[in-house]
Structures are given as C-alpha cells and as structure tokens.
Design a binder for these strands. Structure first.
Lengths: 229, 229
DNA sequence: CAAGATTATTTGACCCTTCAAACATTAGCA
DNA sequence: TGCTAATGTTTGAAGGGTCAAATAATCTTG
C-alpha cells in the first residue's frame, strides 16, 4: 500500500474521522466541522476530496467511513499523536491541555525514529525509579516555564556554559575567520577559559577552538541560561 | 511589539533570511530560493509581502534586511529550532541530518513550555553522569528504530503492559459502557490481571477499572510493545 | 403525512503559496 | 564603455483550504 505524503490538513481530517467513527453517531459533517473548527461547507469539500483519493467511503448526506487504506493512514497518525502525548504528559509532566495542543501541531512532522527515541527515553526513565522520582521533583519544581535565557556579549558568557549565537557584528577580517569556523547565528558556543587579564578569550564551537580579543567577543551576541553547563 | 501568529512558510522565510544575513553575500533572492527549495519568483513575492508586514526592509534587486521586529521574530524562531536540534542530537542521540529535518518541521508548533521542559530534561540527564552514560548506552543499542509495536486483541495484551487502543468493535451495550469510560481509539489501556481461567479480564484505562469477558476483549484491537511495562 | 427545523451541499469568492514564462535589471568582462 | 550572462521581477495561472450565502436533503414532530 503506497502512501504519498499527505498535507497536515488532510491528516487532521483523517484523524478526526477515525475518532468520530468510534462514537455512536459516527463521523458526520457537522461533528467533523465542530472538531476541526471549520465550517461545514469546508468539510463537505474535504470529504469529497478524501473520497476521490480513496481514503474514505462517503456519499453526500451520509456518514464518513474510512477505507482500509484510510484507516491505516489514520491509525498511523493517531499513533504519532499518542506517542507525543504520552511523552508530554508522562515524561515531561505537562498538563493534558498543553500536551494535547502541542501534539496536534507537531504530530504532522515527527518522524518514526524520533517517536521511537522519545518513547525509549520515557521507558528508560521509568525503569529507574529513583532517578525518575528525582526527575519528577526537578520538573515539578520548574513548574511552568523557567525564566528565559540571558542575552549578552560572548565576553560575558561564563566559562563552560553553552550559549546560542544570536548575531555576529564584527569586522570583515574576523568575521571571515568566524564563518569558516561555523560561528553563525543559531550555533552553540562556549568560552573555554579567559586569560588572566581577560584578554584573549578561548572559545569552543563545533569542535573548533579559537581565541579572540575581549573587544571582539563583545560584538558576538549570545543567549544562555545562568547556572547551566 | 505585538506579534500575530505567522504561517509556517513566513517563519521559514524569516529564519532563512536571518541566517543568510550573517553571510558575506547577505540575503539575496536566489540564495533564499535555493535554501527553501522554491523558485526565485516565489521568493520575490514573499519578500514583497514580508516588507508590507513590516518584517523586512527590501527593495527590488536589493538585499533583504530584517527590521528590528522581523529580526526579533526570526531570532525567536531560530531559538525554537536550536532548542529542538539540541534535544534531538544531544539528548536523543540522533544524527545531525535526522535532527535537522525534524526540527525544521516541528519548530513551527513547539511551545515555549515544551521547549523549556525538553531543555530541562537534557540538563537533568547530563547532570547525572552515571545515568547519562547508561542512557547513552541504551539509546546506542537501540541504534535505528526498534521494531514496531505488536497489534493484537486486548485479550492478548500481557498484564501490566500498556497499549494503545486502535479500534473498538463490540456490541452496542458494552460499547456504551466503554465509551463512558473513555475507551476510544488512541487511549492507553492496560490489563491488570486475568482470572485463573482467563475470563473475565480486569482492565485499567484513564484511571478507571473495569472488567470484561475475554471474548469481548478480543474485539478491542490494541498496539503495544513487547517487553515494555 | 406534511411542514418546519435541522443538517448538508453547492456555488462563487478570496487568500496563500507556488510555478513557468516573459520581461527587466544588474554585474562582469572584453 | 558597452555587451552578454547572471540574476531578479512581473504576470498569469493553478491548487489547497477556507468562508458566506443560497440551495437541497433529511429528520422530527404534531
């Protein structure tokens, strides 16, 4: 059974229809529309298209039923949804609501391998009760979101702490050297050590090591979290 | 600075422009097109639209530069990207390639809270060297993807193992009871114990407990992973 | 059973994203 | 400097997804 890549919207329809199929009412236009927050007319169009793609058996004014192929696809999507959901609630300790909305958004792009690894991580954690307890304590202390990272010049990044490069605002010569080393926005960077008088600074990035003057480092904006190695 | 929700595509353009802005060439139409795998004409249109939205300073045949607002948004997106990337590579131990493509897809939907929690989890793991080593061993043993889960009737789900409900194909009466308990596709379910003669079976779902006959349980399809509690 | 209420579909329109092809500008080289 | 190659824009068209309004089918109830 060949399955070409479906759009996120189509996946949403399929998933919703699978869920509603199991209710006594079955999957009806109005209910699908309500579930997906669209107008019934939109659902009519989608149902027609899905039927043409061989994913659905549907005739106007009827009840939508998945074909074997459609059901197979829908179950695969539901599996991604549940995998993420389980990770968010059980492993990350997020609320069902937060978990649900995020899973709905991310389920269309998560790959089987990622899904498998996050499941494995959850299992790993739960199979070490003492550690799992510790983790539960840590994450419940964090409660909501921790304060956002600090932004500063690279010269103010404490040695050993990893930060993310935000921007590089240095002269052409140094810039060229930095770009060759891969120092571009979004890259992780760390200060290895600072010379006694604070100049020069030894920096580590992508496995490369380079040193620069404090004044130069100050021009590189980084974001980092205090207390975090 | 009010920021309305942007489409995934717009976010992609902004992120790409931010990245290219830091190169010597700057962000040019052709380079953006190449990075996003679209035609230059598409980029022209996008650049115009972005400029109208006040996210970009761009005039035809020029170089795209983010406005302060645009840069702020782009950095936020890049932050999500990096956060996910770090989780996939450092915590899940996936390859840079796999991590990159998945991060690109998921970065548009990940919430700040989820991002923060996965960062916290990574930090937690790394702050317990002995556990972290163990976890690295586990995940490298898993290598690629583990074999997919097994599908079976609920009656064949080993006690204590949690499975995902795929479908419920029982009579109206039991079905009503099940639906009231929340036994619908996608829900986690477990068999608590099996009576000596295998009938009835005690089942746990969503904190509820219920018992059913083996024949009924056989009609509930579930997916689960052998050896996993 | 028939009339009104409910539920669905069709139609025509719009926005977003994309492309190919025709056209315009800029850059590089002679 | 001026011509060609490279690069970028405009235009017209298409597909996906959406809506509001008009229309049609189905259901409910007296």
């Amino acid at each position: 059974m060949k399955i070409e890549r479906l759009s996120a919207k189509v996946e949403d329809y399929l998933e919703t229809i699978l869920r509603l199929s199991e209710t006594p009412r079955g999957a009806r236009t109005g209910d699908i529309a309500a579930a997906l927050n669209v107008q019934p007319s939109t659902v009519s169009a989608a149902l027609k298209s899905l039927t043409e793609q061989g994913l659905l058996n549907y005739e106007p004014y009827g009840v939508a039923e998945l074909t074997p192929k459609g059901r197979h696809v829908a179950e695969e999507i539901a599996g991604r949804h549940v995998g993420l959901l389980r990770f968010f609630t059980d492993t990350l300790g997020l609320t069902p609501e937060e978990s649900e909305v995020t899973a709905c958004g991310m389920e269309h792009d998560v790959t089987p391998l990622v899904l498998d690894r996050i499941a494995l991580l959850g299992e790993f954690l739960r199979s070490h009760p003492e550690l799992n307890e510790k983790w539960r304590a840590v994450r419940s202390t964090a409660k909501g979101e921790r304060p956002p990272g600090v932004e500063s010049g690279l010269d103010e990044l404490p040695p050993g702490v990893r930060g993310v490069v935000l921007s590089v605002d240095v002269g052409a010569a140094l810039r060229k050297r930095l770009v060759e080393m891969g120092v571009t926005p979004g890259v992780l960077i760390a200060v290895e050590r600072v010379a006694p008088l604070g100049d020069p600074i030894a920096v580590e990035v992508r496995g490369y090591r380079l040193s620069m003057r404090k004044a130069e480092a100050a021009k590189i904006r980084v974001k980092w979290r205090p207390g975090l190695i």
